[in-house]
Computed example of a mutant assay.
Amino acid sequence: MLYEMENEDLHVTVSSRGAELWALEGADDTACLWDARPEVWPWHAPVCFPWCGALEDGWSHGGHPVPAGRHGLVRDLEHTLVEQSADRLRFRLRYDGPDWPWPFTFETVHALEGTNLVTTCTAVNDSPEPMPVQLGFHTGLRCPFTPGRRAEDYLVRFQRPEAPGSVDILPLSPPLFTGDTVCLAGLTSQWLQLEERDTGRALRLWVEGYPYVLLWSQPGLPGFLCIEPWSGYIGPGRDLTDRPGTVLLPPGQTFSRTQRLTALL
């Protein structure tokens, strides 16, 4: 089911499936998020939890193999709307299923603050054992977001000179993602933004506090660019606790991360 909220600057649509952002439009009706064309990439802005990335060899718990796909569980499950107002939506998921040994509760809050869309995800470990967790955002920004433009008319601007080559600008070009993902670790920039070269219009994602930030699209830049702040990263082996950035969450404790998207339109 789809739910909407808006203020003077932004209009947002959220799906109960995964509590996923489905659409974000500016006051001038600029569409900011990828439209999830299934033949290209069938998502808008999923959340990755309780792990980020692929588990290509599967993993095991207590010596037993556990089925696992890409980017965790929560993006594929139905969440329940538990709070709604003109500028705030809160969803809840309680999971105690066969594909993850630790029961957990997961809440997602989307809130509008002027030209900012703030998404906060909070997990609670409902099991009697420590639970390994990673959390990441996988927001697909529409590129181009101005009709009639091309992806080559855009760049990724860093707050500080931390793009490849120690500069503050990464130009976008169709071959950029032929080798898949650009992974950036240990950034000190508070934000990265997808920016229109000649106008300065931009979609800014705040990434402060995240040890990993990924840039991803498909070869040819077919209409989107993902800027992905992750708390953890992929790693070798079948033990999730060995993956970089994994946190062992004690029973009854919470793990929370926030993403802020600013529309500079």
Score class of each variant (00 low, 15 high):
residue 209 G to F: 09
residue 172 L to S: 03
residue 68 A to G: 15
residue 163 A to T: 00
residue 111 A to I: 03
residue 151 A to W: 05
residue 143 C to S: 10
residue 200 G to I: 08
residue 94 R to W: 11
residue 42 P to F: 03
residue 63 G to M: 09
residue 155 L to D: 14
residue 75 R to K: 13
residue 174 P to Y: 08
residue 13 T to Y: 08
residue 179 G to V: 07
residue 195 E to N: 02
residue 11 H to M: 11
residue 231 S to D: 13
residue 168 D to A: 14
residue 34 W to E: 10
residue 122 T to K: 07
residue 116 N to D: 15
residue 52 C to F: 09
residue 105 T to H: 00
residue 40 V to H: 06
residue 160 R to G: 10
residue 226 C to N: 00
residue 196 E to F: 08
residue 32 C to V: 15
residue 180 D to P: 09
residue 72 G to Q: 06
residue 210 Y to D: 07
residue 53 G to T: 02
residue 58 G to C: 09
residue 6 E to D: 13
residue 61 H to K: 00
residue 71 H to Y: 03
residue 5 M to E: 05
residue 111 A to R: 15
residue 214 L to G: 12
residue 30 T to I: 11
residue 51 W to K: 04
residue 59 W to P: 03
residue 192 L to H: 01
residue 202 A to W: 06
residue 198 D to E: 15
residue 127 S to A: 13
residue 142 R to T: 01
residue 156 V to A: 08
residue 112 L to I: 06
residue 49 F to N: 11
residue 80 T to E: 15
residue 233 Y to E: 15
residue 243 R to C: 02
residue 144 P to I: 02
residue 262 T to E: 15
residue 98 P to D: 13
residue 191 W to E: 05
residue 39 E to F: 03
residue 37 R to E: 14
residue 1 M to Y: 11
residue 185 A to M: 12
residue 54 A to Q: 14
residue 253 Q to L: 10
residue 139 T to Y: 11
residue 122 T to S: 09
residue 24 L to Q: 05
residue 65 P to H: 05
residue 229 P to S: 04
residue 138 H to R: 03
residue 224 F to I: 04
residue 195 E to Q: 15
residue 235 G to N: 03
residue 108 T to K: 13
residue 118 V to M: 03
residue 213 V to G: 07
residue 52 C to V: 15
residue 139 T to L: 14
residue 22 W to Y: 13
residue 249 L to E: 05
residue 41 W to G: 06
residue 18 G to C: 05
residue 158 F to Q: 02
residue 217 S to W: 00
residue 98 P to H: 10
residue 222 P to G: 00
residue 43 W to S: 13
residue 165 G to K: 06
residue 88 R to G: 00
residue 48 C to T: 05
residue 107 E to N: 09
residue 16 S to L: 10
residue 81 L to D: 08
residue 249 L to G: 05
residue 234 I to D: 12
residue 214 L to F: 12
residue 128 P to D: 14
residue 204 R to I: 02
residue 38 P to Q: 10
residue 175 P to H: 09
residue 149 R to P: 08
residue 125 N to E: 02
residue 257 R to H: 13
residue 242 D to I: 01
residue 224 F to H: 07
residue 5 M to T: 01
residue 63 G to Q: 04
residue 246 T to P: 06
residue 197 R to P: 09
residue 167 V to G: 15
residue 23 A to R: 14
residue 237 G to V: 01
residue 256 S to E: 11
residue 137 F to M: 04
residue 150 R to I: 00
residue 24 L to I: 06
